[in-house]
Amino acid sequence: MKAPPLPLLLTWAALLALLAMTLGLAYVPMPGPMNVVLALGISVAKALLVLALFMKLFRAPTLTRAAAAAGLFWLAILFALSATDYLTRKVEHVGDLPAPTGSEHQPGNR
């Protein structure tokens, strides 16, 4: 069996390096949401590598790229417009009732 083509081999190596990086960084305490942002940023990088080189998206016809973009665009609609509610919704504190913390109900063994 002939050796794999170099671009594919390099992509694979880059994917594994990114995997090691994201795993390591996850254990480093960072301020605020930095851990998530970095982890998802690395995931985006990995996904782009797979899309571009394994799935050959960058060499694909415009139509194919449009189909790929459509899925992501509509996903963005779902998240962005839901956010208009979730980011601005206030949970009112009525009387002594605390905001839900998830601790009120002990599910027990079911």
Partner: peptide
Amino acid sequence: AGISLYAGLVF
């Protein structure tokens, strides 16, 4: 249904 007023305006 209880969405925020801001979201109501946007939608």
